[in-house]
C-alpha cells in the first residue's frame, strides 16, 4: 500500500520527486537552523560579512523564488504528463462507482456488453488504464498508492484517472475521502494480469454456475432474502445496487477488504457483518436461522 514502493510510471514519477524534495528539504532546514544558531551563538556573527541585505535579498528574493520556480515548472510538466490525454497507446477502460462503503466496478468494453463486479479490478499489465470514477451517494476518493495519485469520486461528476501497472500483481487501494461510518473499511484491490490470465479471470464473471440449479438448497433462500439488492448475474446492476456476487468465490476479500475470503469466512460475514463492519448498508440477518445462512453461503461459494 506504500507510495514509496511505486509500480508504474505515475507512481514512479511521484516517488522520484518525493526523494528529491526530501533531500532538498533537509538541506534547507539544516541551513536555516544552522544560520539561526550561528546568529544566536556565533561569536563572529557580527563580523562575518553576512549583512542583512545579503540575507533578505539573497535569501528572500533570490534563493526562495529560484527554488520555487524550478519546482513549479517541473511540477507543471509532471502533472501534464499524468493527464489522461489521448495518445498513441491503446487504453483499457474501467468504470468505478463508489458507494458507502464499497466499489462497484464495470468493464464497459467486455464482449457482449458491460460486466459488473465489486471491490476488485482486473486490468492488463503493461497497458495504460483509464478509470472513470463517480459516486453514487457521498464523496469518496479512489486511490491505489503503488500505482499513482488519487481522484475524487463525486456525485454528479465523472473524473478520469490514468494508471498503469508494469507487471502482474495485486495492488491495494483504499477510499481516501472521509465518507462516513465505514470510511475505514472501504478497500479495493487492483490485480494486473498478463493478457490471457485476464481473460480467464474475467471469464469467472459468468452468469451461470454449476450450483445455480433451482434444487440447490440456498438458491431459493438467496432469491427470497438477498436478490432484492444483490445480483448473481454480472450483466445486471440491480435496482438498488449492492455488490454483484457473480465471482464471489474468487474474490480475495469480503466486505471491501474487511476480512480475507478464506474457508468459512463467508458464513461468518453473513452472520456477523454488522459487528465486523458496523453500520454497513446490509441489514442484520438475525431473523435467519443458521441452516438458512449456511445454505446461502454454500450457494454463493459454489464448488471451490
Amino acid at each position: 500500500m506504500s507510495a514509496l514502493d511505486p509500480a508504474g510510471p505515475a507512481a514512479d514519477a511521484l516517488a522520484g520527486v518525493w526523494w528529491v524534495m526530501l533531500g532538498g528539504s533537509f538541506l534547507i532546514l539544516g541551513a536555516v537552523v544552522a544560520l539561526a544558531l550561528y546568529a544566536i551563538y556565533g561569536r563572529g556573527a557580527r563580523r562575518s560579512g553576512i549583512t542583512p541585505r545579503l540575507l533578505i535579498v539573497g535569501g528572500g528574493l533570490v534563493f526562495t523564488p529560484a527554488v520555487l520556480a524550478a519546482l513549479l515548472i517541473w511540477g507543471i510538466g509532471a502533472g501534464h504528463a499524468l493527464l489522461p490525454l489521448p495518445g498513441e497507446r491503446e487504453v483499457y477502460r474501467i468504470e468505478v462507482r463508489a458507494h458507502q462503503w464499497w466499489w462497484e466496478v464495470t468493464y464497459p468494453d467486455a464482449e457482449d456488453g458491460p460486466l459488473h463486479a465489486a471491490n476488485e479490478i482486473h486490468i492488463p499489465a503493461g497497458r495504460p488504464v483509464d478509470i472513470t470514477v463517480r459516486a453514487e451517494d457521498v464523496i469518496h476518493s479512489f486511490w491505489v498508492p503503488r500505482l499513482g495519485g488519487k481522484i475524487d469520486a463525486l456525485p454528479g461528476h465523472t473524473n478520469v484517472i490514468r494508471l498503469e501497472a508494469p507487471a502482474a500483481g495485486v495492488y491495494r487501494g483504499q477510499c481516501a475521502e472521509f465518507c462516513g461510518a465505514q470510511h475505514s473499511r472501504m478497500a479495493l484491490l487492483i490485480e494486473a494480469h498478463e493478457t490471457e490470465a485476464l481473460e480467464e479471470r474475467l471469464a469467472l464473471l459468468s452468469p451461470t454456475r454449476e450450483s445455480d440449479s433451482a434444487e440447490a438448497p440456498g438458491a431459493a433462500a438467496f432469491q427470497e432474502h438477498c436478490a432484492v439488492c444483490h445480483s448473481l448475474d454480472p450483466r445486471t446492476r440491480g435496482a438498488t445496487p449492492a455488490p454483484n456476487l457473480a465471482d464471489l468465490p474468487h474474490r480475495a476479500t469480503l466486505g471491501a477488504g474487511t476480512l480475507p475470503n478464506a474457508e468459512g469466512a463467508l458464513l461468518r460475514w453473513l452472520r456477523d457483518h454488522q459487528d465486523l463492519k458496523p453500520g454497513n448498508r446490509m441489514p442484520r440477518h438475525d431473523h435467519l436461522d443458521p441452516e438458512t445462512l449456511e445454505a446461502i453461503a454454500n450457494h454463493l461459494e459454489g464448488p471451490r
Binding site: A3, A11, A13, L14, V17, W18, M21, S25, L68, L71, L72, G75, I76, A78, G79, L82, S141, W143, P145, G148, G149, K150, I151, A176, E177, F178
Partner: peptide
Amino acid sequence: VMLALVPFNWQVHD
C-alpha cells in the same frame, strides 16, 4: 511547498 506541487498532492492528499 511539496503539497503545492500538483502531482505530488494527488499522491498524498487526504
